[in-house]
Write a protein that binds this DNA or RNA. Structure first.
Length: 427
RNA sequence: GGAGAGAUGGCAGAGUGGUCGAAUGCACUGGUCUUGAAAACCAGCAGGCCAGCAAUGGUCUCCAGGGUUCGAAUCCCUGUCUCUCCGCCA
């Protein structure tokens, strides 16, 4: 969330920003609530002062005094109640206000992103390419039917060499991240709702993507971003030796309510997957550079897998609440090709997201109360947080098998993974 | 699952009804001393909110939420977590 003081002082800028991001928040109501809250607080504080002074008297208080104090007490209680109401409403509104937007972020709808880089033209195969689902089913490495039987649709079993490939991808990602100074951490797959909200996810409401545990204050996490952020909740962390960098392994759960169409095929959009996620806590003046660093590491990982991809600067309306700026890497995938073109030998795929890195400034840190001690000002200040996908075991395998398939349906393993596997192809 | 003990500032740790937002030590910040550093000494040092240009003042917070009381870190209830013992178990 943003600092209420900042909103108070820059209401027009905030309204403008909400418009850019296509987010509907009633800033006027928010400001009015803030004002009402402050007014109540002033009255309340005055009464509290009377009470405190009244109770400082030594010796036995007189009956009149006791009577008066009780009256003040009752008034305070009433004011406290209305104060709490206002504050709750204010907090709710505040949670809806999205983060500020980076000056270079393209302003516009989802499709109005800016392509920053394309590594290579996707290789034109001289045969009819198959999508990953077809390939993996053929090799008996994936079982959606039994996944549906046991859990429900869009759940699956991973088998044999695909499990090994996934392990190899994970270890490959871990090694690169550790080389860059990231600490390996494996997180819980559940968290309190408060933590989810702090990360900017909404466990309640109709459009929620979150699985909730019945009768418990727990949700299944959609990403390790949530649990790593929560790891340092309500802490003052030491950033004197540089940023704190984690590479976190967790399962991810998403309800994916209302997602259909081409992108619901195979592994692209599933309810449960495993992900290796980078997460950084840093000082405010470091976050822009670190965001570039995270992107560079993601590119290093994808480069090693010899995948055609592009890097895009996500458009303002597609940033979500917490992100100030977001870069995605989109890999070329057969499955995203236009079905009408399917007969053509050179049937083309399309680009689909495989990683995403966001700079959230102090938006998440403010909600989670994570600070560092700034030596220059001798003050405790909110840290900046960033996250980025290292490896995700739903979409990485898609891009891998679709791009490295051979005419006979076998799959070539890129060199970078050879040290992690005892086979060089799947056939 | 049962029984007991506990949760206090960045950390350690006192405090069991008013003079306590809280001793003391460590850490941290500034200074004196020193060629420099260390040590020693002096001073400062929790956070949120509100009013104020500021100095400053007020208020809230001693795990969380309720309660008792003129007055709660301190007493009572509920919850969460931690530790010790017993039971059970991958």
């Amino acid at each position: 969330m943003l600092d209420i003081k900042y909103i108070r002082e820059n209401p027009e800028l905030i309204k403008e920003n909400c418009k850019k991001r296509h987010v509907q928040v009633d800033i006027d109501t928010l400001l009015q609530t803030d004002e009402e809250r402050r007014e109540i607080q002033q009255n309340l504080n005055q009464l509290q002062q009377e009470r405190n002074q009244g109770s400082k008297l030594k010796g036995k208080p007189s009956p009149e005094h006791i009577e008066k104090m009780k009256k003040i007490g009752a008034e305070i209680k009433q004011l406290e109640e209305s104060y709490n109401q206002k504050e709750e409403l204010l907090h709710e509104l505040l949670l809806q206000v999205p983060n500020l937007t980076h000056p270079e972020t393209p302003i516009g709808h989802e499709h109005e992103f800016k392509t920053l880089y394309t590594n290579q033209e996707p290789e034109l195969k001289d045969f009819q390419t198959k999508d990953h689902e077809e390939l993996l089913l053929k090799h008996d490495l994936l079982d959606f039917e039994r996944g549906a039987k046991v859990v429900g649709s869009k759940f699956f079993y991973t088998k044999g060499k695909l499990v090994e490939l996934n392990r190899a991808l994970t270890n490959y990602g871990i090694d690169i991240c550790q080389k860059h100074g990231f600490q390996l951490i494996e997180t819980p797959d559940l968290a309190h709702k408060k933590i989810l909200e702090g990360a900017g996810f909404n466990p309640r409401g109709e459009e929620t993507q979150i699985y909730n545990i019945e009768n418990q204050d727990l949700s299944l996490v959609g990403t390790a971003e949530i649990t790593v952020l929560g790891y340092h909740a309500d802490e003052v962390i030491d950033l004197e030796d540089g940023p704190i960098k984690y590479v976190a392994l967790s399962h991810c759960f998403r309800t994916e309510a209302g997602s259909y169409g081409r992108t619901s095929k195979g592994l692209y959009r599933v309810h449960q997957f495993t992900k290796l996620e980078m997460f950084v806590f840093c000082k405010p003046n470091q976050s822009d550079q670190i965001h570039q660093d995270l992107l560079a590491i993601e590119q290093e990982i994808v480069d090693g897998l010899e995948l055609p991809y592009r890097v895009i600067d996500i458009a303002s309306s597609d940033l979500g609440g917490p992100a100030y700026r977001k870069f995605d890497i989109e890999a070329y995938m057969t499955m995203l090709g236009d079905p009408d073109e399917k007969d053509k030998i050179h049937q083309q795929g399309n680009y689909g997201e495989i990683t995403s890195t966001s700079n959230c400034l102090d938006y998440q840190a403010r909600r989670m109360n994570i600070k560092f001690h700034n030596k220059e000002t001798n003050q405790k200040e909110f840290v900046h947080t960033l996250n980025g996908t290292a490896v995700v075991l739903s979409r990485f395998p898609i891009a891998l098998v679709e791009n490295h398939q051979l005419p006979d349906g076998s799959i070539k393993i890129p060199k970078a993974l050879h040290p992690y596997l005892n086979f060089k192809e799947i056939k």
